Computed example of a mutant assay.
Amino acid sequence: MKAIGFKTSLAIKEKDSFIAFETQKPEPKGKDILVKIAAVSVNPVDYKVRQNSAKDTVLKTPKIIGWDAVGTVVAVGNEVTLFKTGDQVFYAGDITRSGSNAEYQLVDERIVGRRPEGLTPEEAAAMPLTSLTAWEILFDRMRISAEKDKGKSILMIGGAGGVGSIAIQLAKKIAGLNVIVTASRPETTEWCKEMGADVVVNHKDLLNQMKEAGYPQVDFILDFVNTNSYWDKMVELIKPQGHIASITGSADPVVLNDLKTKSVSFSWEFMFTRPMFQTEDMIAQHHILNKVAALLENGTLKSTLTNTLNGLTVENLKDAHALLESGKAIGKTVIKF
């Protein structure tokens, strides 16, 4: 089968930052299903892994990355119960396994959902990783619910990216929150409003903008940009007994003591935790994706696809990674096979 990967971590403009190659089609065992891929999307985790996983070394076998896919089940392992051959599926996968930038991929059925009907493969491929991340951070980590939190306020730092684009929709449509997001360009501001944001503020003057918008403090804060850069501002903006959560990691230690007097909670969200550690509730991602599929089908949620590239090629992957690395991406870029 055809696949695209890399043997060493190079700048995206370098000739061999990605290479096309042939490899054997895998066979499913246990709870794995084999998917013939129709489309994939790219996420920041893709370029971060490409930049960092093969520094100062040359791998013997190219590393295949990619964690978003839609396709058809063509074979199943002997323990599979959720899917059969011919089923249309979508999923984000497992960061510890071979990725989706290939014609075929093995994936554990417990982290796979049914592809939403009525969406193109491209529209569906844009959704799994970001939907899982947004769902988990809102409803699993922060434990937000419409029953107890409707009408409360949430600030999302970085609203126009892949995760922000679906988190806005979930927070507004499912949880009933007042959604404030950061954006600085006219096109990102408009996109966030289209996704359902109530208020858009400029991150370059965040504290003053929040006061002017009538939100000197908020109940919840989501960081989709940089925990360290915004830490002091988040500490000031969060209400007593509020909750801050982040997906971005921290290059420097986070001073959790800053949250003590307000009794504020803090959570990390890493979408790959469940498959990576084979957690007891790993199948939760199967259920989340099926819920997202239903919400996409009934129009409650809409795909965040903004850009489609045609063909599994080195050139298309380079273009997609370059766009993400530029920091100018809005919504999601998908590669249709």
Rank of each mutant, 00 (worst) to 15 (best):
N208P: 05
K36Y: 03
E14V: 14
D16R: 09
D140M: 14
D16C: 07
N43S: 02
K148G: 13
S229M: 09
V40Y: 00
L106A: 07
H287T: 14
I137S: 12
N226W: 11
L289Y: 02
V199L: 00
G331H: 13
K25Y: 02
L177M: 06
F6I: 06
K302P: 04
M271E: 08
K204Q: 12
D232Q: 07
A245D: 06
R274H: 07
G113H: 09
I95T: 06
A54H: 09
T308L: 13
K262C: 07
A329C: 15
M282F: 10
I111F: 06
K55D: 15
N178P: 06
T85R: 13
T85C: 08
V181T: 01
I238K: 01
D56P: 09
V292C: 13
A20E: 09
V40H: 00
I154G: 13
E236Q: 14
A3Q: 06
P240M: 00
K150L: 11
L155D: 07
S184M: 08
K13R: 10
D87A: 00
P62K: 02
A320I: 01
R115E: 13
G242H: 09
Q169C: 00
L317H: 14
I64K: 01
Q217R: 04
G242P: 08
E14G: 11
G159F: 10
K25A: 01
T306V: 03
A245R: 09
L119T: 05
L129N: 05
K332F: 15
A39W: 01
W268A: 08
A54N: 07
V200F: 06
A167R: 15
I12W: 09
V58M: 07
I111W: 02
G86S: 03
V255M: 12
K55C: 12
E136D: 11
K172W: 00
K60Y: 12
L324Q: 05
G77C: 13
I335E: 03
Q217G: 02
I180G: 08
K173A: 06
V163R: 14
V35D: 10
L34F: 02
S265E: 15
S53D: 13
T85V: 04
S303W: 15
L34S: 05
D68P: 00
G164M: 11
